[in-house]
Design a protein around this nucleic acid. Structure first.
Length: 885
DNA sequence: TCGTTTCACTTTTTT
DNA sequence: AGTGAAACGA
């Protein structure tokens, strides 16, 4: 196959006959592509690096390239595409299918509304498009036992961060280390970093010379032992163990590397050392196979990424993987996709201006053939609630005036905690919204517990999950009893579950023994004593889940709670549990062992459905638990649902929206204060802002708040440096903060708290478009580039109009009590803790004082006579008052 | 043993 | 503010 220039490439491949002899322009695979895009699609042999700038049609190119490879006669079965999220993988699979098989029929529904599974198109059979973690999980499930990797069995449990935390606490306790000196979180992140650099516990120990690392090494070893005993591995282990397996088992390595002749990796800038190692191993068999000529340059590895969008350095991602691609893979061709097809020229100019401020960067072109666009609005506001109102006003306006649909709008923020206030605004404005938090559902207490039951069923050695469920709901197996059994189990070197089955030997109270027996019998019934056979064993996955929920007593427990307290959350819990049953039912429908890379290694086996001797229920349960363990926040993005999407900047990568609001562009938040230790970290924050801006297609609003309450503390903020760095072209800056009274910062004093909750008409007119309003940041007055003259004129007209509309702002006296619209019923009810006159309260800053007077209603105020500073008027919602007497 | 209260501490991002 | 763990009382 020729590679670079392909005037006649169509002649020698096996196109469907109707396309024979057509001109290149009519080829659906090359249709509408630019020259560099075509090159990328057609370069199917040998290493290829595609440096794809934001919005340069990257996904399109990958999809077409896969289609092209298949069209050239490579069976889909020989292709592996790796992504970082399930959603990205799913979309890619879908788009390749459409490209090759044409538009897919819509989902079919049965009369009772159930969705019928759409069968995998036979042409797509065996195409592997998945995430790094899923791939490894499946490979380990399939091969680890045979490869003898750390005694890992196919029933292993994947520990999420809370399980890791529980395991680590156990370790630290066993080593009698103080949690204050050895915070579990810190230790875990040290271990995670090590794992991401391919350092297992032994290697780490060998390289530990100072006291601290030696200690970490000891903890690391113990932690690994605890996981091993539980038959569990953590996220990082998934990759690490898979690499170990390939390194130590050349037959498996050969098998896989020769299966996947074409490798594509998306978001390559975010790969870490382990991922790099893994892809290198998969790209090349250890030795040429008989009958298979193998030269270095025949490695069909294609990496796609953008160094400017590297935002996972903190997770061990190594940007040099992409920068050194040409060195790692000799003979690699590099193709630059620099033309942006997504954003308006103004948005692109801002993004480009920002990213140019990074020093450690290979400058690369980022350009568009369009000009102008809607101006970017950069607005300084009073506080987070004011910000929320501005976001909802903005979206409402776009919706009503411009006809933009809710699903085409998104709010981005640096930290998850920032979503709350936006949610409140959305709710009170009546705008439908969804938060992209894939893990949120599975983080709920009741769901976690049920999942823990399922994990114990799949893997009885899993002590962490067992401890979670053994006395939930309470069944008389208390801490003291468990301590005895745990110690006995450790001494006898048996699992905790085995310890439970032998509780009679431990001289426990008959009462405790009875409770334990009942528990063990219950588990055994579900598993058929581990055989997954017999009359008492549920026949389907959703039936198993259903029975766990009822027979464990969880359902009864929450029902009782709901009845006793009338508590809404307990009702919710019951709903969630039935949703979990639904999710299991959905999984049953979707589950296709033949499409599971772990389930077969060649097409022959696929047809025989070779899953070993594993009973179907168990196999499905394992796959279900695995899928749950590997959901990402970004997977929950659903841009078809007719709602505005709220998400972190990290989750926004790879997406695009016609309208975007970025919030909290403040020093300490973006760039985040925790990422301020080095230049590298600051540059990563800048890339994060860059990613956010480049998601926006037409409309972009960026806000920063004068004051922000974080963890109950209201503080003044400084606008983010990034606001200056985006330049001035096509940007309207406005300051919509109220007059600052200057006094009483961070105290919840009257003047601060006054601003939120008033009609937005008043505020949006106040101080608008004050020139040079903050941080040396001058508003755009226009003209420089004649290219954008028309648009800039438009901006100026808009500004003039706004200025003309400004109504003089009424002077606000401190006693003036303007009627307010409650921001949300919830917020005001939270704040109506009443303080009777004369009671003694404590303020975090002013100390103790006596309550003189209180006013009720929303924005309730209280006048307190403080010992230290005298009489103050405080807003209850803001002032963190504590009642002393 | 269980349930409530209090206190201390915190998460920046996530597979 | 919200969570999780320890402490306390029943």
């Amino acid at each position: 196959m020729p590679t670079d220039d392909l005037p006649d490439f169509l002649a020698d491949d096996n196109l469907p006959s109707k396309l024979d002899g057509v001109r290149e322009e009519d080829d659906p695979i090359l249709d509408g592509l630019t020259e560099p895009q075509k090159q990328a699609v057609l370069h199917t042999e040998g290493p290829l690096l595609i440096l794809a700038a934001a919005g340069s049609g990257k996904t399109r190119v990958i999809t077409r390239r896969i289609a092209q490879i298949i069209k050239q006669g490579t069976p889909p079965w020989n292709i592996l595409a790796l992504t970082f999220t399930n959603k990205a993988a799913g979309e890619m699979r879908e788009r390749v299918t459409v490209q090759i098989c044409g538009p897919q029929p819509p989902e079919q529904h049965t009369p009772d509304g159930e969705i019928l599974k759409r069968p995998t198109d036979p042409q797509m059979r065996g195409l592997t498009v998945t995430t790094f973690h899923s791939l490894c999980a499946r490979l380990l499930r399939r091969y680890a036992e045979r490869a003898n990797i750390e005694g890992l069995k196919p029933d292993y449990t994947i520990y999420d961060s809370s399980d890791q935390m529980a395991a680590m606490k156990k370790v630290l306790k066993a080593m009698s280390l103080q949690a204050t000196n050895w915070p579990p979180r810190t230790v875990l992140s040290a271990i995670s970093n090590a794992k991401n650099k391919l350092m297992d516990a032994k290697k780490y120990e060998a390289n530990a010379f100072d006291y601290y690392s030696k200690q970490i090494a000891k903890i690391y070893l113990r932690y690994e032992a605890v996981l091993k005993q539980a038959g569990a591995i953590d996220f990082d282990d998934l990759l690490l163990y898979a690499v170990k397996m390939l390194e130590t088992n050349s037959d498996i390595h050969n098998e896989l590397a020769s299966r996947w002749r074409h490798l594509m990796i998306d978001e390559y800038q975010d790969t870490n050392s382990v991922q790099f190692r893994l892809t290198s191993l998969l790209a090349a068999p250890p030795a040429p196979l008989p009958g298979m000529e193998h030269e270095p340059q025949s490695l069909n590895i294609c990496a796609v990424g953008d160094p400017d969008q590297a935002i996972y350095g903190w997770r061990g991602a190594d940007i040099s993987n992409i920068l050194d691609f040409e060195n790692h893979f000799p003979g690699a061709k590099t193709i630059l996709l620099g033309e942006n097809f997504r954003s308006s020229a103004f948005i692109l100019a801002a993004a480009d201006s920002l990213i140019k401020k990074n020093n450690k960067r290979r400058d690369k072109p980022l350009f568009t053939s369009t000009t102008g666009g809607e101006p970017i609005a950069v607005i300084r506001v009073n506080n987070e609630r004011h910000e929320g109102e501005l976001v909802t006003d903005y979206f409402q306006r776009l919706h009503d005036d411009e006809g933009i649909q809710w699903k085409d709008m998104a709010v981005f923020y640096r930290t998850n905690a920032l979503s709350r206030v936006i949610e409140d605004s959305m709710r009170s404005a009546g705008i439908p919204y969804k938060i992209a938090r894939g893990t949120a559902f599975f983080d709920r207490e009741e769901i976690k517990t049920t999942i823990a039951y399922l994990r114990v069923i799949a893997n009885q050695a899993d002590a962490i999950s067992l401890l979670r469920v053994v006395n939930t709901p309470t069944r008389g197996i208390g801490k003291a009893t468990l301590d005895v059994i745990q110690n006995a189990a450790i001494r006898a070197n048996i699992t905790l579950f085995e310890g439970l089955t032998r509780s009679k030997e431990l001289g426990l109270s008959p009462r405790a023994v009875t409770s334990i027996d009942k528990f063990v019998t219950m588990i055994n019934q579900w598993t058929g004593e581990g055989s997954f056979m017999g009359a008492s064993v549920p026949s389907t996955l959703h039936e198993l889940v259903e029975r766990v929920i009822t027979e464990s007593g969880l359902e009864a427990h929450y029902k009782k709670q709901a009845k006793a307290s009338g508590n809404e959350t307990d009702e919710e819990r019951l709903d969630n549990l039935s949703e979990l049953i639904t999710s299991a039912r959905d999984f049953e429908r979707e589950y296709d062992p033949a499409n599971d890379p772990a389930a077969f290694t060649d097409p022959q086996a696929a047809t025989t459905g070779d899953m070993g001797q594993v009973p179907e229920l168990l196999a499905m349960l394992r796959a279900y638990l695995e899928s749950i363990a590997l959901v990402a926040d970004a997977d929950a993005v659903d841009t078809t649902s007719g709602s505005v999407t709220l998400m972190t900047l990290h989750a926004s990568k790879g997406l695009e929206f016609p309208a975007v609001a970025m919030i909290a562009l403040e020093e300490g938040t973006l760039p985040h204060s925790r990422a301020n230790e080095s230049q590298a970290e600051l540059e990563e924050e800048r890339r994060l802002a860059f990613v956010g801006i480049t998601r926006a297609m037409k409309h972009l609003q960026i806000t920063s708040a004068n004051r922000r309450t974080i963890r109950g503390m209201t503080e003044r903020t400084i606008p983010s440096r990034f606001l200056e760095e985006i330049g001035t072209e096509g940007i309207i800056v406005s300051d919509q903060t109220d007059v600052d009274f200057g006094a009483g910062e961070r105290t919840g004093e009257y003047d601060d708290a006054f601003a939120p909750g008033h009609g937005s008409a008043l505020r949006s007119s106040s101080n608008s478009f004050r020139k040079g309003s903050f941080a040396g940041f001058s508003p755009t007055s226009g003209p420089d580039s004649p290219k954008h003259k028309a648009d800039l004129d438009k901006i100026n007209r808009a500004r003039e109009q706004r200025l003309a509309n400004i109504v003089p702002r009424p002077t606000i006296a401190c006693t003036h009590n303007t009627p307010t619209t409650p921001t949300s019923p919830k917020a005001s009810s939270d704040a109506t803790t009443t303080y009777p006159q004369g009671c003694i309260v404590r303020h975090p800053q002013f100390g103790e004082g006596t309550v003189m007077k209180t006013t009720a209603g929303s924005n309730a105020r209280v006048i307190v006579e403080f010992k230290s500073v005298g009489r103050k008027t405080l807003v209850l919602e803001y002032a963190r008052l504590k009642r002393v007497r």
